[in-house]
Amino acid sequence: MSEESINNKENQMKGTSLNKCLTECEKGEEVIVIRVNAGRNAKTRLANLGVVPGVKITKTKNAPFKGPLEIIVKGSSLVIGRGLASKIIVKCNEACLT
């Protein structure tokens, strides 16, 4: 499997559709996780807490000074450092498009 081809695909998708990283979301926006581009440890931890591709999350808070942000995933609130959040690729929930 080539990591590159996936990244390319993703970039293409990013250009054409509404994919963005979690940090770019508005407060209160509900989005669907597409992919987590983090290292193995962080990815596993997030997956264990329910942040897996396809899951709906809502961004609820932004800490000041480019700090971490808070999301609601599966009914519980989770704080994620900004560096990690920028590696979480999400897309707009269909509901918010209409």
């Binding site: 983090a38 440890n41 962080a42 931890r45 997030l46 807490l49 971490p68 808070e70 519980s76 609130s77 989770l78 704080v79 994620i80 450092g81 560096g83 990690l84």
Partner: peptide, 10 residues
Amino acid sequence: CTELIMEMHE
């Protein structure tokens, strides 16, 4: 430095 992942309960 690892990134913060923390639950914030009510």
